[in-house]
Simulated assay, not measured.
Amino acid sequence: MYRRFSPKTCALACALLFSGHAGHVFAQEDPGYNPTWYILPGANIMSADDDWNVDKNRIGGGLKLGKPISKSFDIQFGGWGAAQKDNDTDLKYRQNAVGADALWLFSRSSFRPFLLLGVGGAQDKLTGNNIDKSKWTPYVNAGGGVQWYFNDRVFTQLDARYVWDSIDDKYFSPENSHSNNGNWLYTLSIGIHFGDRPKPAPVVAAVAAEPAPAPEPTPAAPPPEPKFEKTTIAGSELFGFDSATLKADQPKLDNLADLLSHQTDVGNVQVTGYTDRLGSEKYNQKLSERRANAVKDYLVSKGIAADRITAVGKGKADPVVTCEGVKKRKELIECLAPNRRVELEPFTIERKVQ
């Protein structure tokens, strides 16, 4: 038969059970914990007091709600039920209980041994052998166990506790002379937190601001160098169609002549004439040369030295547009107009003069 344990004996046994491990746990650095509420369903086996005359265990269960309240303590509320029966008779004993436990944890690492102490109300129920009685009384339980966290939200809990209540056994069986009852209860539970562990706010270290260095004096900007342009002038502004004779007014050529007259260090200016693809290659080559020379002669007439200017004709080379699919001559002449042009270079900025 089972031996009777007092609450004092139970507490001493739990302390001895974890004393060998406690020093190692306390030496570990606390990594933090998830402070949210958790649910704790579990299964249990009871070892009942000898006075109940039952010796065959039956699987029981329970459900609790828990919450960490500090780095060292959890609280758990809920209820459980456990039962045993006698192998030789029809006698059955069951204990149901509701209450609260305080858990003192040695660590908040993934492996968390603890001691527990709790209070509540217990119902002792005995049936069979012409007995059908039950009674509620206060209880106190003490014990210990361990929590093992798989991650911040899911863990398992294994605990053993001694449950003592003040029920009078004579209420159930006159031949019993004891006035209290003590049962051992062993429980395996799965815990699931309702929320995630809060992420710590980033720590920003305060750094004393160093005085900004005195700004160095800004050197005076050198005078800008003259910028010249590769200038493209549309042939329609300079000449009539199939002509190398300049039109009367040439404001753009006048502007270029004025620029060159003030920038005497700019030499070897090349004037290049182009035509469209209409006509023979030989004819277009001659026409492009005459157009380039006409522009050179105009600039020379405005006071620009002739040895600063070179006239070149490239005929129908380097077309800007191709006008594929245009068959009517009038429309084709209009389409090919961008190819009939005169370019003046070298220059460092490209800009098409309209």
Rank of each mutant, 00 (worst) to 15 (best):
A206D: 00
F228S: 08
P35F: 12
K199Y: 07
G78F: 05
T245F: 07
G79W: 01
L116G: 06
L63V: 15
Q354K: 11
G79C: 00
G267I: 05
Q147M: 07
L299I: 01
F155P: 00
I349E: 15
E225P: 07
R4L: 06
N293I: 08
V98I: 13
L116Y: 02
G143H: 05
A234R: 09
P41Q: 14
A97D: 09
N130T: 10
N284A: 08
A244F: 09
Q28Y: 06
D74Y: 12
N130M: 08
T36D: 15
P346D: 09
S261E: 03
K170W: 01
E229D: 02
L115W: 12
A294S: 14
K330T: 06
A305N: 08
G23D: 00
I233W: 08
L103N: 13
E237S: 14
G66N: 07
N141S: 09
D101M: 05
Y274V: 01
A205D: 13
R161V: 14
Q285R: 12
E29L: 02
T310K: 13
I39P: 13
E216S: 10
P174H: 13
D30I: 04
A294W: 03
L158Y: 11
F73A: 04
K328C: 00
A257H: 08
S134T: 06
L105F: 06
A220L: 10
G61F: 12
A234W: 04
A22D: 10
S243T: 10
N141W: 03
F228L: 14
G279E: 07
A100T: 14
Q157S: 02
S177P: 00
G120F: 00
G182Q: 11
G279A: 11
V154M: 09
S70H: 01
P215N: 06
V154E: 04
W80D: 13
D276Y: 02
L332P: 02
P251E: 10
D90I: 05
P319Q: 06
K286I: 10
R153W: 04
T310M: 04
F5M: 11
K227H: 06
P251D: 09
K286D: 15
I304T: 06
S6T: 15
F194C: 06
S243L: 03
E29H: 05
R112H: 09
G120K: 00
E229N: 04
V353H: 13
T264G: 08
T348K: 13
E331C: 01
F18E: 08
T348L: 11
S179Y: 06
K328W: 00
K316Y: 11
F5C: 05
A221H: 03
T275N: 11
L126W: 08
L238V: 09
R58K: 15
L344G: 01
V98A: 13
F239T: 04
P338A: 02
A294H: 02
F155A: 10
Q147H: 06
G60A: 07
D124N: 15
D55W: 09
V203P: 04
V342H: 01
E237Y: 10
R3E: 11
D242P: 00
L253M: 06
S72M: 05
